[in-house]
């Protein structure tokens, strides 16, 4: 079954983020207060691994699992959407201490209050869909 591998990647990701405590409100709070290196170490190491990996893929023109050349999607150019959207997300991230991945993972740890954050995030996405034509991008 093709989807099984994605399920396993998800399980792996959920375990790693929980054990790294990247799903913890406390870790996000101390990160934004620059009181611990923990989160910066995680993001820095992930980036270091990612940059080397992607450079290798590009230099060696590696092929993916299906034998196709790997094409990494470039982000659209722009400024306002990234700075405004990013700031709004940052406000939410520091308030409830979770980004979208951890919202799902925390549901698995049995924190039912996170369901409210999840519903809010769905509503927020929906509101963006309604307003996007009126927003600067």
């Amino acid at each position: 079954m093709k989807l099984a591998r994605f399920f396993l990647i998800g399980v792996f990701f959920g375990i790693v983020l929980t054990k790294a405590e990247a799903v913890s409100w406390y870790r996000i709070y101390e990160m934004f207060h620059f009181q611990s290196f923990h989160m910066y170490g995680i993001i820095g190491t992930a980036l270091f691994t990612g940059i080397i990996g992607i450079q290798l893929i590009k230099k060696k023109k590696l092929k993916d699992f299906n034998g196709f050349p790997i094409a990494i999607i470039e982000k659209e150019r722009g400024f306002w959407r990234y700075i405004i959207g990013g700031t709004l997300f940052g406000l939410g991230w520091a308030l409830v201490g979770s980004c979208p991945g951890p919202i799902f993972i925390l549901l698995g740890t049995g924190t039912y209050a996170v369901a409210v954050v999840f519903i809010g995030a769905l509503l927020g996405t929906y509101i963006y869909g309604l307003l996007l034509d009126y927003l600067p991008h």
Partner: peptide, 16 residues
């Protein structure tokens, strides 16, 4: 919790 979620949902989609 709801406002935090709204900011996360709206902000992430806006920022892509």
């Amino acid at each position: 919790l709801l406002i935090g979620g709204l900011l996360i949902g709206f902000g992430t989609r806006y920022a892509g």
